[in-house]
Amino acid sequence: MSWAAHDLEPYAFQKHLNLKVAFVPLLIGSYAPDLMTKWFVYGIHLGPWELKASNPAQFHRGWPGFGFTHSLTFGLLIGLVIWKGFGSKLWAVSFVIGHWAHALTDTGDTVGTMLLFPWTFHFHLDAWAYAGQTGRFTDAAAYFSGLGGAWDAVWIVYGFYSWRVITSEYFDNIIYRADAFWPWVNRWVPRGALLTLYRAAFFYGTSRWIAWTIWAHVVHHYPYDLSWGGPHWVPAEHP
């Protein structure tokens, strides 16, 4: 799984597609596959009870499970619902682009995704270890010690290279104009707050990448392992 790429990829697409996409569904699409499942992968405590998937990787990416949320077909289906059900082709296309980016990015780990569900074959590049089953903190430590964290860094660098996308000028001329959502929200929320919210995922992805890297390597001294499929000090899941 990826930790910051899903926050940053929408800005890269935005740079190239300008008025052809709407940013909000692009970002929602990018978050969508994990939106309902991540909490159950890591588990939560509700009083004396712990709610957690017995097989987190299977639940998150497999079938039976919710792995279909990471397939291109599921993204397309939700896109069709948005288009035909809510009448917005722009939102539909933007959602699908964001969703597909997430599904394709997650093929980078050792579990991969069932891109062509209902075909249950997992496409996986094995570049970094899937360690969601170890819990949130070990997963973070492993991710930011291997090629997954390095892949996120590529998106951060590309985001800064695309710096114009996060300027107020770009927000006013492209983001705000491309999608009626922004003028609608602007009736209640001031423009300055909207601009800040637009930049928030970029800020969140970048800051979190730095913070987790410090947490894993300065505070806790987890060893880096940038070899293919690493870090090998964590037990990686496979399909």
């Binding site: 800040t196 928030a200 979190r208 730095i210 913070a211 947490w215 300065v218």
Partner: peptide, 22 residues
Amino acid sequence: IVIGVVYDDFLLSVVVGMAYLV
């Protein structure tokens, strides 16, 4: 980042991150 490194739960929620930034 400083808050996040000290209280790591702070880094886990995108909603908290966005609210903080606003």
